[in-house]
Design a protein around this nucleic acid. Structure first.
Length: 431
RNA sequence: GACCCGUUCGUCUAUCGGUUAGGACUCCAGGUUUUCAUCCUGGCAAGAAGGGUUCGACUCCCUUACGGGUCGCCA
């Protein structure tokens, strides 16, 4: 029997990291087992559903590279994949349940009568868990059909998992206590249950529950913050899952290869944006310069910086120095405009440096160079310092600040070449 | 409050009874780079507490503490 997993979001908000990771684990498991990954939209709460939220979820999954084999925009033989369009199916199951004598009326609503017995489940992550349903105060009989005739989550979720032949339900730990309810429902329906794997939740850095408003929560924010989808996927996979090796940087394909439910952790993980940025840097470093340049272009244009003729050379000079694509504009601005902001602290420090007195001499020397190259410019620095009994390294800092206005930046040689003779001399003199 | 799950460096984690408890992020120091970054080397830093079981416990059991989750005609 082939593995079938599903991601079943309700379109009431944006795709957040927790949901994205749930989707990722379902997707990884399905791909690893050569099974199918199904997307199902749980839009039974008409009052809270929005088209924007639905679209944001689709977009988020697509951006992450989590394609679905069946679902909206894709079809499949177990559709429709919107719960709002499956009323007839639910009615059929409801009749079945009604006939089983497990339902009773509460006003105009219907409740499902639980078996008052301990329920034991075997969770693929949590192990064996028993909930004692003899204690009805903690487990009141649940409503499965509202007084307005609509069905609640527990019922439709179970029916759909059965109908869609889901074999493995991988979901957040917030559903762990729902599972016995679902198991009872499935048993009453006379069906076989899928296997369950409840994954720990993702917490904020301070340990509080991560909700949609918290920093880093919305997947939709990541692209414009300069993250690569491969990095985000890599990072959230590491939240609660480990490759059991010292390696941490993986492509989606490598994750599929290494993934296993058994390697999922039981304790909730805190979200560390710093490490996420580092992972992004690792992925950024692995892509070629041309691709990097294309990816960075929108960010450069967004800051109203010109995409110059030597754009590729400019990007090459800074490629290894940024963690996020959003850092690119500031990293290159002094190379492509004359009006870039300066770091006043660095400027003061450079001006206080006694070697700054050599800058005019250096400027003259550079102005007289016949052939402009990084090599020759650097050699000129060497000549100036030896003539004045200083050390080359000491002059590098003032030169850097004079040319870039910053204490940190690309290799000086790159700066010389990109700026060219005229601008280099001009900036040294005006400094 | 009841019930469920959990607890190894600040954070993510390895360890499936015997290890100087390993790696990564962050931070610090040194080296490389005549400069910045990268990179390399090193450092700081952990088994929540108390009881058992055992020749031996981070690992198994119990208690407590703490964290998270659930207890809806939300999903």
């Amino acid at each position: 029997m082939s593995v079938r997993t599903r991601f079943a979001p309700s379109p009431t908000g944006y795709l957040h990291v927790g949901g994205a990771r749930t989707a990722l684990f379902n997707w990884l498991f399905a791909r690893k087992q050569h099974g199918s990954f199904i997307l199902r939209v749980e839009d039974t709460d008409a009052a809270r559903n929005t088209d924007e939220a639905r679209q944001a979820i689709f977009d988020g999954l697509s951006w992450l590279g989590l394609d679905w084999d069946e679902g909206p925009e894709k079809g499949g033989k177990f559709g429709p994949y919107y719960q709002s369009r499956r009323a007839e199916i639910y009615d059929t199951y409801f009749e079945k349940l009604l006939a089983s004598d497990r339902l009773y009326k509460d006003g105009d609503a219907y409740r499902f009568r639980f078996d008052r017995t301990p329920v034991t489940m075997r969770d693929l992550v949590c192990g064996e868990v028993t909930i004692d349903y003899r204690d009805a105060s903690n487990t009141p009989d649940m409503v499965i059909r509202r007084s307005d005739g609509s069905y609640v989550f527990h019922f439709v979720n179970v029916v759909d998992d059965l109908e869609m032949k889901i074999t493995h339900v991988i979901r957040g730990e917030d559903h762990l206590m729902n599972t016995p309810k679902h198991l009872q429902l499935i048993a009453a329906l006379g069906a076989a249950s899928p296997q369950y794997a409840h994954i720990p939740l993702i917490l904020n850095p301070d340990g509080s529950k991560m909700s949609k408003r918290d920093a880093g929560a919305a997947i939709g924010d990541y692209p414009r913050q300069g993250f690569l989808s491969a990095a985000v996927v890599n990072f959230i996979a590491l939240l609660g899952w480990s490759s059991k090796s010292d390696d941490e940087i993986f492509t989606l394909t490598q994750l599929v290869d290494r993934f296993s439910l058994a390697a999922i952790n039981r304790a909730p993980a805190r979200f560390d944006l710093e490490k996420c940025k580092w992972v992004n840097q690792q992925h950024l470093a692995k892509i070629d310069t041309e691709t990097f340049a294309e990816l960075a272009k929108p960010f450069v244009e967004n800051e109203n910086l010109p995409v110059t003729e030597n754009y590729l050379a400019v990007i090459t000079a800074v490629k290894d120095k940024v963690r996020l694509l959003t850092e690119v504009p500031h990293a290159i601005d002094f190379l492509v405009t004359d009006t870039a902001s300066q770091d006043s602290e660095a400027v003061e420090k450079a001006k206080a440096n006694p070697n700054s007195a050599l800058l005019p001499t250096l400027a003259d020397q550079l102005a007289n160079l016949n052939e402009w190259s990084a090599e020759n410019a650097k050699q000129a620095i060497g000549e100036v310092v030896t003539a004045n009994g200083a050390k080359a390294g000491q002059l590098m800092f003032p030169v850097r600040v004079a040319l870039s206005g910053r204490a940190h930046g690309p290799d000086l040689g790159d700066i010389f070449e990109i700026l060219g003779k005229e601008k280099t001399v001009k900036r040294l003199r005006s400094f």
